[in-house]
């Protein structure tokens, strides 16, 4: 039996494959993944590999951890980036990168990393 789309995506990331859900019918990238395409309502979707190329949309630096597993990282920056077609991904910005001078539209790169021990996409470059 096929895995539920979210479980399948976490599984792919844990295996080191950066991918996102894509609609078979309209080719929209959809995130978070789900059983129905939010653009065309097709129920036929698959996971497609991603090269990680994205554009910066917004960011916020967190000064108080929401849960104990994030406490050691405080303060940390969370970025919002858009993939081809505009799908949004929220990801931790790697330590050492400062939002100083950032503006929406700068190129950004996602790659697989870990936050609080969980494999997931992280933002490892903004601009340049």
């Amino acid at each position: 039996m096929a895995m539920e789309p979210a479980a399948e995506l976490w599984h792919e990331w844990a295996q080191g494959r950066l991918c996102f859900q894509e609609c078979d019918a309209c080719e929209a990238i959809q995130h978070p993944p789900g059983p129905v395409c939010g653009t065309c309502h097709s129920t036929s979707l698959h996971l497609a590999p991603s090269d990680g190329h994205a554009a910066l949309v917004s960011w916020s630096t967190v000064h108080r951890a929401p849960a104990p597993e994030f406490a050691a990282d405080v303060p940390y920056t969370i970025g919002l980036v858009s993939l081809r077609g505009g799908a949004l991904v929220q990801a931790r910005v790697l330590p050492g990168m400062s939002p100083e001078g950032w503006e929406p539209g700068l190129p950004a790169t996602l790659r697989l990393g870990e936050v609080a021990g969980r494999p997931q996409p992280v933002i490892d470059r903004v601009g340049g």
Partner: peptide, 26 residues
């Protein structure tokens, strides 16, 4: 929040902060 947001470590305030930062930039 969805698991795909929670995994990065946001407060509820962070989600509004992302929107606020975008509003200020725009």
């Amino acid at each position: 929040l969805s698991a795909f947001e929670v995994a990065s470590g946001p407060l509820i305030t962070t989600q509004y902060g992302l929107i606020a930062q975008s509003y200020m930039s725009r």
